[in-house]
């Protein structure tokens, strides 16, 4: 009896392990929601490719995870400030746009970005985008805030949160009137650092994950912060907490995430099937519905979104897109930005 039980366990294990070992299992390292079962299940069924998703909490997770080696991952989705680093680290391979249906539907503005190109070849497939907007708790403000000054205001002392990221340097620089946030001089970075140190006593907590920010609002700890537009606000709305997103007078950053194929993936065929699905209506409206992010393929978005959603996600609003300061790779200046932010946190 015992032996039979062991035998059946072993069999169950080997059956369970089989799909993972079979060719055609894609391992994707991505953001939560980007491989959501609401649109992924259909893909798995139709393509015969299994998908294992591992989630990152920050753009800074991609490099260390891939540098760990082992050839574990096939596809990644870094944001436009991190894509160039992936190319520099020789971790990703060039794409063949001719094999991706819907490529021509992508906003030209995204296809023109340097971060996803090198030597005339594309390394990233634009997927979704949005703003690093600001957000406040409706009931805490009689007069809606319109400026970044609200995040430096004594009135909101102890109720302010800011993303624990180099992005805080961008925010402080804009408040100082330095709009060249991706090319700041050492003096401008130092000034931003001073502003953040001045702000620090007013800050309740620097948030690091989407869930953490939602918890901070839910627990009544925070009334104003920056946010990944569309995402945390919809999670809060689902909890019945009314918050409003806004773009301050000083502007906001924009981000855009791209799918990249990890160098020498053994699953190229499945990878391209996956890219095609993600850029089609299935993937584009999938991510818009799950995460509240805007879609990179304008044509797909038009055919699968309702008019309201199309408008709410600024899909037909080139001015909105142009008003965002789209993240850019900082290259070897990254260290200066990060060092300034680390020294703020060390205070």
């Amino acid at each position: 009896m015992k032996i039979r039980m062991i035998a059946s366990y072993t069999m169950a294990l080997s059956v369970a392990a089989a799909p993972a070992l079979a060719e055609g299992t894609l391992n994707v390292l991505t953001w939560e929601g980007y491989a959501d079962s609401s649109f992924l299940d259909q893909f798995v069924e139709e393509s015969g490719c299994e998908v294992n998703a591992t989630y990152v909490g920050s753009n800074d997770d991609f490099a260390p995870k891939l540098m760990g080696g082992g050839g574990v991952y096939d596809l990644i989705t870094p944001s436009i400030d991190t894509t160039a680093l992936m190319i520099d680290l020789d971790l990703v391979e060039p794409l063949d746009p001719s094999m991706i249906e819907g490529w021509d539907g992508i906003y030209p503005k995204f296809l023109a970005l340097d971060g996803i190109q090198r030597d005339g070849e594309y390394y990233g497939m634009p997927y979704s985008w949005g703003a690093i907007a600001f957000m406040y708790l409706d009931k805490a403000f009689d007069e809606p805030p319109t400026s970044l000054d609200a995040l430096w205001s004594e009135e909101n002392s102890g109720k302010i949160s800011l993303w624990d990221d180099k992005s805080s340097i961008y925010v402080a620089a804009r408040r100082n009137g330095d709009m060249n946030i991706y090319n700041l001089s050492d003096e401008q970075i130092a000034a931003a650092r001073e502003s953040l140190i001045e702000q620090k006593p007013l800050v309740r907590k620097y948030w690091s994950t989407a869930g953490e920010l939602v918890d901070l609002y839910k627990a009544g700890e925070v009334i104003i912060s920056n946010t990944w537009a569309g995402y945390q606000s919809s999670l809060l709305a689902a909890e019945g907490i009314e918050v409003t997103e806004f773009i301050p007078e000083e502007g906001a950053e924009g981000w855009m995430d791209s799918w990249m194929v990890v160098k020498n993936t053994p699953n190229r065929e499945c990878a391209y099937k996956f890219l095609n699905m993600q850029l089609s209506e299935q993937g584009q409206c999938g991510v818009a519905n799950v995460n509240g992010y805007s879609a990179a393929n304008a044509e797909a978005a038009r055919s699968c979104m309702t008019d309201e959603q199309f408008e709410a996600l600024h899909q037909d609003d080139p001015e909105y897109l142009d008003s965002l300061l789209i993240w850019a790779p900082l290259g070897d200046r990254f260290e200066a930005y990060l060092n300034a932010w680390n020294s703020v946190k060390a205070q």
């Binding site: 920050s58 800074d60 490099a63 260390p64 309740r204 907590k205 680390n342 060390a346």
Partner: peptide
């Protein structure tokens, strides 16, 4: 520090994590 610490809560282990992760240093 990550869960219950505040803005002034960074400890040395957090800095090490940042250097190995974010900073790639």
């Amino acid at each position: 520090p990550f869960l219950v610490g505040g803005p002034d809560g960074n400890l040395v282990a957090n800095v090490i994590v940042t250097q190995f992760g974010t900073a790639l240093n």
